[in-house]
Amino acid sequence: MNTEARTRFETLIERLEAEDYQVYNAHRRESWGAKFLTPDECTRLDYDEISASTVFVAFPGHPASPGTHIEIGWASALGKPIVLLLEEGADYAFLVRGLHTVADVTYLTISDTESLADEVITTVNRLARNATGS
């Protein structure tokens, strides 16, 4: 993961945690690539963490991240509200672009990291309130 992408992830995680959200993130869990888990370990942990989540937030990736696409599928099958962070002008899989027709998906376009973090917080707060009925 390049420095810009890692900074984007870390900024979003810090902002969400400052709002008292528990953030599950495989990249952080695996020390940003320094301590990979086995396929059996990471698959089970990712699935369990998505199952326990109130809102699922993801960068589908450009080029596509196969693991993230599996996680997006799990989140939609589990009925989780989903926030997908898309790069402006990038091309995404048809099923990512059309996912909103079968799941609760909010698409946010990535601009600068700070304004993106603000948009993500606002969106996650709204979706979490709706999901918990408060």
Rank of each mutant, 00 (worst) to 15 (best):
P66T: 02
L84Y: 12
N130S: 07
L108D: 04
G61R: 02
R126D: 01
E17C: 09
A131I: 15
E17I: 09
T38R: 09
R97D: 02
Y47Q: 00
D118F: 00
R126Y: 08
H69K: 02
V55E: 07
S115Y: 04
T132G: 09
G73R: 13
D91I: 05
L95S: 06
Y47N: 08
Y47V: 15
I50F: 03
T38E: 01
T11Q: 06
T3R: 10
G79S: 03
A131H: 14
L116K: 12
I70S: 11
G98E: 07
P60I: 00
A64C: 01
V105E: 11
P81W: 10
E19W: 10
I50V: 14
R6D: 09
F59D: 09
R29G: 01
R97W: 05
D46K: 10
S76C: 00
F94W: 08
T106S: 03
T11L: 15
E71C: 04
Y21I: 11
D118V: 06
N25P: 10
K35W: 02
A18G: 07
F36G: 13
A90H: 08
T11A: 05
L16Y: 04
L86Y: 07
N25E: 14
S65Q: 03
P66S: 02
A52D: 13
P66A: 00
T54M: 00
M1K: 09
A75Q: 06
D112S: 12
G67M: 08
G98W: 01
D104K: 13
L108N: 14
D46S: 08
T43E: 13
G33H: 12
F36P: 14
V23Y: 13
F36K: 14
K80P: 07
Y21P: 05
A18V: 10
A5C: 12
F9G: 03
T3M: 01
P39Y: 03
R44Y: 14
Q22S: 05
S31A: 15
S134I: 03
T68E: 05
F59R: 13
F36E: 10
E17A: 06
D46M: 14
V102N: 04
L78R: 09
A128E: 02
T109A: 03
V96I: 00
H100R: 03
R97F: 05
P63V: 00
N25C: 13
A52W: 12
E88P: 11
I70T: 05
A18L: 01
D91A: 10
A128N: 08
I110S: 07
L12T: 05
D104Q: 15
S134G: 15
T106L: 03
I70L: 09
E19Y: 11
A58L: 09
G133W: 04
Y92W: 08
R6Y: 03
L45K: 06
A52Y: 14
T113M: 02
L99D: 04
A5G: 14
E41C: 04
L78D: 04
D46Y: 09
A64D: 12
R6H: 06
L127D: 01
D48V: 00
T43C: 01
I70Q: 01
E41N: 04
G98R: 07
L45Y: 13
S111P: 09
R126M: 00
T68M: 06
S76D: 04
A93W: 12
Y107I: 02
